[in-house]
Design a protein around this nucleic acid. Structure first.
Lengths: 248, 248
DNA sequence: TACCGCTTGTGAACGCATGCACAAAGTCGG
DNA sequence: CCGACTTTGTGCATGCGTTCACAAGCGGTA
């Protein structure tokens, strides 16, 4: 048990054992870890010190076995017969997710969405300070939004370097997205969160996550349609909408 | 070829063959179909009439085999040796995704994000008109946002019924989310898009999709950390940051 | 008409993620 | 100190999704 680590030390960030684990964590599990972390933080705020996999999993909306497996990816920090120490788990997940380091965020495209993002003011969950804003519109340049003055998009490279931006958020109209993305990449940004409904082309060393409202809506639409369809289907098969069989 | 269907006819929406297929489409494939649809629409606008799986797949950022399999879920609409007719594919995907019907959207929580969403004015991709806005703040009630006056949250049930809302969007602060969700559900809304960082509890017949910025950021953070870690690891193993071996 | 080249559609193999079920391991009460 | 109870951690089986590879099918050409 020779662990316990300082904050954001980039040269020796994790013990070798943890390091190999970090490689092996499935993407899906990483997303859930973030959810567990939020639930755990809430519990810690309420003074809860210990939690079982059963409690935590229901609060996070997953299967308890899945939860335990997810936690096992990052090591064994529970006590059999008791559960998990909330504080320990929180700090351990934070370390695995790299949250001991601050991640400076730049938002590009200060339209409606960009405004909303900038005004979140330090992203939800903290640890993600927005330190730079960009837009093409000269009228916006210099105007402070959420306390930060907007820079012109031409200055991306310089400003991102100065402020050590590690995450770029693209909130531009679709046609501008790829160009902005290219600039962010050439400015050394390796992680991009893309709100524009465009498939971005990036080099292998850059990580892109996309948030696509249109796609989300259309997935919901699909389910509406499927349901309406099943209902119609059941009707012609003699089953009423309430599940009662009409013609037995 | 006894197909071709009218618009949003809820009683006989799909041919039996299509109906069974719709059940079987994997969730992941549905999400990609929405992406294909967008790419195809763009192509159609540029006058492209035919596209091969290879072209379409690279434009959509996926493997060509995956694309063909995805399309096979919705039927065989390609021509061997030639490719797919863009128009045919567009209208077929639209039908499968249920986009021949308009889906009325309600946004709850008119803060920064709610404003941004309301102002999108008919959601990206069209076919998702925002027809109702809600907030608890009395000062907001009656104020038009994006052309639609805000209603008080107490009136959700009545207004949603009147305007036949089929999709509810939750953009409230976290503590309010579950309450709002419950009201939407009791108002008969069966599809919810949740922007609040909360795990919603809903009955089985309700479909929830969540957009969680904090989680997205944390996933990116994880990759930043993993990368920094690999770099450190490679350094101690004698591999420089540019991939060159220092001590062979 | 018969051949050739191109592209689709899909059977089959593979790999990843999920869920089950249980042994291991710890606590607590007597 | 021991035994009963609780909860973790994980080996294993199952199912889903992705990828490969190729036969089937179509248009163009001679």
């Amino acid at each position: 048990m020779a662990s316990q680590r300082g904050e954001g030390d980039l040269t020796t960030p994790l013990e070798p054992a943890d390091r190999e684990r970090a490689r092996a964590i499935p993407e899906a599990a990483v997303a859930r870890l973030a959810v567990y972390l939020r639930v755990l933080s809430g519990m810690a705020d309420q003074g809860v010190t210990t939690v079982s996999s059963e409690e935590l999993s229901t609060a996070a909306g997953v299967n308890s076995a899945k939860l335990r497996k997810d936690l096992s990816y990052i090591g064994s920090y529970g006590t059999r017969g008791v559960g998990y120490d909330v504080e320990v788990l929180v700090s351990h997940i934070e370390r695995i997710l790299g949250l001991t380091r601050k991640h400076s965020v730049a938002v590009v495209g200060i339209g409606n969405l960009g405004h909303a993002l900038a005004n979140y003011g330090g992203f939800p969950g903290r640890g993600f300070p927005v330190t730079a804003l960009f837009d093409v519109d000269d009228d916006l340049v210099g105007v402070p939004v959420g306390g930060i003055p907007v820079n012109h998009i031409e200055d991306i490279q310089r400003v991102c370097a100065e402020r050590e931006v590690s995450i770029g958020v693209i909130a531009t109209p679709p046609p501008a997205a790829q160009g902005v993305c290219d600039r962010l990449v050439s400015a050394g940004v390796q992680c991009i969160l893309n709100f524009a409904p465009v498939v971005l082309q990036v080099p292998d060393n850059v990580e892109v996550r996309k948030v696509d409202l249109a796609v989300e809506m259309q997935i919901l639409s699909f389910h509406v349609a499927r349901r309406a369809d099943e209902a119609a289907n059941d009707l012609v098969n003699g089953i009423g909408v309430d599940g009662m069989v009409i013609r037995p």
